[in-house]
Every structure is written in C-alpha cells, then in structure tokens.
C-alpha cells in the first residue's frame, strides 16, 4: 500500500488560512490503512478545524481517491458535491489521489498529508518500505526480498563493507537486508545464485512520470 503521514495540525491550519468552507476528503485505501488519512482521521481534523472557526461542508472518504470513477461517478459525483459546497478542499489521500482531485476542480486543493512510501504492514502499526517501484523487478532472483528498495545503496551484487554484525551502516537500527536475503536463499536452496554478477540496472525504466495503458 501507499503509506501517508498526517501533517501537523498547525501546518494544515496555516495552509487553509483565508478560506471558510472546507471539504475534507480522505482515502479508504492506504491512507486509512495506515491510520493517517482515512475517514476517522478526516473527522478528527474536521473537529479541530471547526474549533478554529472553519465551516466543514463535508467529510468523505471514497474507497480509492486516486480512481477518477470513484470521485466522479455519473450517478453520484463527489466532485460535484464539493464544487457546490466548498471554497477549498483538504485532502488526506496520497499524492496521486490529491492531484486527481485538484486537476478536476476549479477551487484550491490543499494536502493534509505527506506521501511516504509503498510499504507492508505488520501488527497493524509497523509500516516498512518494501518497494520503490523501480520498474525492473529483481526479487525473483533475491528470494522475494528487494535489495533495491531495502538497501539504502540499492546494491544488487551483495552487501557493502559496512554490513557489520547484521546491521546496516546507514542506520544501526536497520538490519542489513543482505543477511535476510542470504538466509532466505539458503532456505529455498538458491544461495548459489547470488554468486553470479548482476549487470547495471536500467534506470530509464524508472524515469518519471511513467504510464501504464491497458489494451482495449
């Protein structure tokens, strides 16, 4: 999922200064899952803004703010609802969702979150970056564990010389992912595959903005 982090309320307040009627949009995908921008957080922010004198004209959190059909369905258009009632939108969706709202509305759209990363969740509260969307996935060769995303240097030919006692030189609280990869490859009987040199990565595949177009 895409994880987000709610901005400090003071910062949100500042970005809305000068506006009166605020429509708050969350997202029930990543933002809700990591409890920083779902419906619950949207209501919490709404309560705070009301106390500060804003008129909250709506609080909604579609299941996928980054899907235009969900924002602008012919039967019930959230965008129309916003357009009629608000003079500013506060979005708690990820960067994609927030931009989609902004490019389809004539009024200002402010973000109440910062988009962090594509991550995995454990125990409902630990979120860790697992993928950097490099466009050239290598994990079939590394035991299903990504060294591109989970090694700060994105090393693909094995660990660096800073991997001491299982720890990453960049952050001693971070285990070196190559220890995990070695363990996993051993477990599945593929350790020897790591002996082969890996050529340079094709970074042209991650030049943004990227597109995916489905065949009709």
């Amino acid at each position: 999922m895409v994880t987000v982090k709610l901005k400090p309320l003071g910062e949100i307040l500042e970005s809305l200064s000068g506006f009166e009627r605020v429509f708050i949009v969350g997202c029930q995908l990543g933002s809700a899952r990591c409890r920083n921008g779902g419906l619950r957080e949207a209501y919490r922010v709404a309560g705070y803004l009301e106390l500060k004198g804003f008129k909250i004209v709506g609080v909604k959190s579609p299941g996928g703010t980054c899907v235009l059909d969900r924002l602008d369905h012919s039967a019930r258009s959230l965008l129309n609802e916003i357009r009629e009632a608000a003079d500013v939108v506060l979005s708690l969706a990820c960067g994609a969702g927030t931009q989609l709202i902004a490019e389809n509305l004539p009024i200002p759209v402010k973000t109440g979150v910062t988009t962090l990363f594509i991550g995995a969740e454990r125990e409902g509260r630990y979120f860790e970056e697992y993928c950097i969307a490099c466009g050239d996935c290598v994990i079939s060769n590394t035991g299903g564990i990504c060294p591109v995303a989970r090694c700060p240097k994105s090393l693909v030919n094995g660990p660096c010389g800073g991997a001491i006692a299982g720890k990453c030189e960049v952050d001693p609280n971070l285990p070196c992912i190559w220890f995990k990869i070695a363990q996993r490859m051993e477990q599945i009987g593929e350790l020897k595959k790591l002996r082969k040199s890996v050529p340079p990565k094709d970074y042209s595949l991650s030049v943004y903005p990227r597109k995916l177009v489905l065949e009709e």
Binding site: G158, P159, C160, A163, A182, Q183, L191
Partner: peptide, 10 residues
C-alpha cells in the same frame, strides 16, 4: 563484514 558467503562472493 557479513554475511558469509556473500562478502567473499562479492
């Protein structure tokens, strides 16, 4: 540095 044998292979 570790892990073995990855450092030696590198």
């Amino acid at each position: 540095a570790g892990p073995e044998p990855l450092q030696v292979w590198k």
